[in-house]
Design a protein around this nucleic acid. Structure first.
Lengths: 340, 340
DNA sequence: GTTCGTTGTCAAAGCGCTTTGGAATTTCGG
DNA sequence: CCGAAATTCCAAAGCGCTTTGACAACGAAC
């Protein structure tokens, strides 16, 4: 069933039917009623490809999903996507997901953009000096960035959380509890959030005249295995840390395993604060020792990003170009006074 | 840059350029070279919407992502998607993801299908007597199902793992170890895999004249919280179980917490076997007591499904219509002889 | 009774691509 | 050197939709 058939069936022209469907005013209410009823009965749906070809829009936002053999799927990605989806479904938008090797993000993004398949672009996993940003700016297509790119003038639309502030606050709390030997379990070194979180820790320590030694920070993709591995290394240092900052509850899962296996008590021998993306399957309050966390819902960020992006495409704006969300520091049992 | 401009630039007709690009034989090699070079230089890419309109194909497979406020994002979904993506990227295919309320799966699927935006459909989270199956069959569009639908003649293309066999084998192992009191921590009741796994357990027990009482099975979405909650209930039964079967390592995570908090020893007081989808962030060998599991990689299934689906669209077939993968039963430390 | 807005409708052009049916050119056997 | 076959290219139609510009039909206004 296409427009032509439908209009013939109704004895109307395609124009009139199209207008009736798209809510144009210059069509008789009775006629519109009749058309709408026919659509109900026949189950007619406009062909999106044709619609896109004609209008240049088709209600889709594009994103690149990093994937490759050997590349870990990221729990955080799924959670974020759910948030995007939750909002998109309300507007009958969909996503075009282009899987791409992480080494070819720029190429994939360009292909996606000029494929004429999407109305707007979304990018995440920002890096320092991210090469996608110049591309995006040159593309004359709406886009929105989750995170920011350290080292590049923030003159692009983004939504980010205050990573630096979060880890600054967390570090200060641990300092107040008397800790002096810190370690940081961070995400991959090149990623923007990792850079900023480290910065937060370093500057809080600096205020007390302390440093974060190179061998007390570890950068890795955020799996529990990596967390355990790194924590084991930390515990073997000549002066092992008493305070741990951790970029994800997933990392914390592994790190805590290492702590326990070393016969240490979390919240007594070792204090730990993790960043909590509010992953539904991994709640900090459910850890055997409930975790003190800096919290910001990844999913909520997804919802908001979809909202802004869709709004931009539909020209519902204006939206704030930049948003920086504060995180909450929630104290639970994994932090305690430094052992003496 | 579009075809017309490109062809004018080259002094050729659109036809010739199009043919040169799409590998048709009736074009001079020298001409083809020239066209290809021009494409390189200009960065020309065909408009997918136009291509789709003209050919009816555009290299995309559609899937519905269940999502709603309050609906848990599912780790398994992300992992599976990564597998799909890994294969799709090799063929320059992409996904169109339509988010939809779980209550409106059928409607969303229909909309996606007749939107003219996808070449093939993929569905997962199959239920018993799944209403999407009749729809899919009536749609005259290639599709592939992950899982099966209990109660419907399996005359549709699917890829599934042998859920019943897996849990049958796991139960037998526990029986051989002398266990007699079993509990099953299962996924949502209406889902096909849950139905079959339960069936596997029940039939293995039946062979020994045992039953699985109603209050010894629990159906819920697979988060660690639910796992813990259900396990706590099981442990309060008048005759608590010594053997646990568990539909996911995520559930196991919570269940084990409950076991530990009850002061029981895993692998001694309680034996547990979980199904392992090979989630990279949750490896059974990394549990404090390494987990005995039935294993089948969800990601590998994703790769295979994409391979078949893309092959079908490209008419590369023939592919087997149905595939049933065996799982591996891997014994680790979480299973031991029944306590006496 | 003519003119002028309104209102409801339509025919046709155009979006960027593929593909059909033919035309122009080249090749080659006889 | 001619006619047929093979090669190389082109003009135009068509995919399903939106949108522009125009046209009847109808009162209202002069």
């Amino acid at each position: 069933m296409n427009l032509k058939q439908l209009s013939e069936m109704l004895g109307l022209s395609q124009t009139t039917v199209s207008r009736a469907l798209n809510g144009y005013p210059e069509v008789n209410e009775a006629t519109r009623e009749r058309v709408l009823r026919a659509v109900q009965e026949t189950g007619y749906r406009p062909n999106k490809a044709a619609q896109r070809l004609a209008t240049g829009k088709a209600g889709s936002i594009g994103l690149v999903m990093p994937t490759a053999p050997g590349h870990y799927s990221d729990v955080h990605f799924g959670e974020f996507l759910t948030g995007l989806g939750e909002e998109a479904v309300r507007h009958d938008f969909h996503f075009v997901i282009m899987p791409a090797d992480p080494d070819d993000e720029v190429g994939a993004l360009r292909r996606l953009a000029i494929s004429g398949n999407v109305d707007a672009l979304f990018v995440a996993y920002m890096r320092g000096h991210d090469p996608r940003l110049p591309l995006l700016k040159s593309l004359s297509m709406p886009f929105l960035v989750h995170g920011r790119s350290f080292g590049i003038e923030p003159d692009y639309p983004y939504l980010d959380i205050d990573n630096e502030g979060a880890f600054y606050d967390a570090t200060r709390l641990l300092l107040q509890l008397g800790h002096t030997r810190f370690c940081l379990l961070n995400g991959p070194e090149h990623l923007d959030f990792a850079i900023r979180r480290k910065k937060g820790v370093v500057s809080a320590l600096a205020e007390r005249g302390l440093e974060l030694p190179e061998n007390c920070t570890s950068h890795m993709s955020m799996t529990d295995e990596h967390g355990q591995f790194a924590m084991e290394r930390f515990l073997q240092l000549p002066e092992p840390p008493t305070a741990i900052l951790c970029s994800s509850t997933v990392l914390a899962l592994g790190a805590i395993r290492a702590v326990t296996q070393a016969g240490l008590k979390l919240g007594e021998d070792i204090s730990l604060i993790a960043h909590d993306d509010v992953l539904p399957h991994l709640k900090p309050e459910n850890f055997s020792v409930p975790l003190t966390t800096t919290r910001s819902s990844l999913r909520a960020a997804g919802v908001r990003i979809a909202e802004r992006l869709i709004g931009t495409v539909k020209q519902d704006g204006p939206f704030p170009e930049q948003e920086l969300w504060k995180t909450e520091l929630i104290v639970r049992a994994s932090t305690g006074a430094a052992p003496r």
